[in-house]
């Protein structure tokens, strides 16, 4: 009688994104949220919590990471450091 697995995300303070902190088992979303509060925010580590059913997470595969992320590898012109600017030119 295994309970579903939930991934827990915590916003540590206003102005920051939610960050993955771990997982837990709980029978439903409501219990998962309360459980997450007790397990992951006992010392005011968060101001907001998301719980997401682990089964619903769609992830890229580490096996195809080269093919998946390579297209960005040969495009250095997307970075500001690609461009030469003379020293005397300011504010650029």
């Amino acid at each position: 009688m295994s309970q579903p697995l939930w991934e827990v995300f915590v916003r540590s303070r206003r102005g920051l994104s939610h960050t993955h902190v771990g997982s837990l088992r709980a029978p439903d979303a409501h219990m998962a949220l309360r459980h997450a509060r007790d397990v992951y925010t006992r010392r005011q580590e968060g101001v907001s919590i998301w719980v997401v059913p682990a089964a619903e997470v769609v992830a890229s595969s580490p096996d195809e990471k080269d093919a998946f992320f390579d297209p960005a590898g040969d495009k250095p012109y997307r970075h500001p450091t690609f461009y030469t600017v003379p020293d005397e030119v300011q504010h650029l």
Partner: peptide, 19 residues
Amino acid sequence: AGHGLYLYGAAETLGADRD
């Protein structure tokens, strides 16, 4: 208790079953 739960969670990422 919390430490136990963090660790069971970590074990589960390796395919172990908590029960």
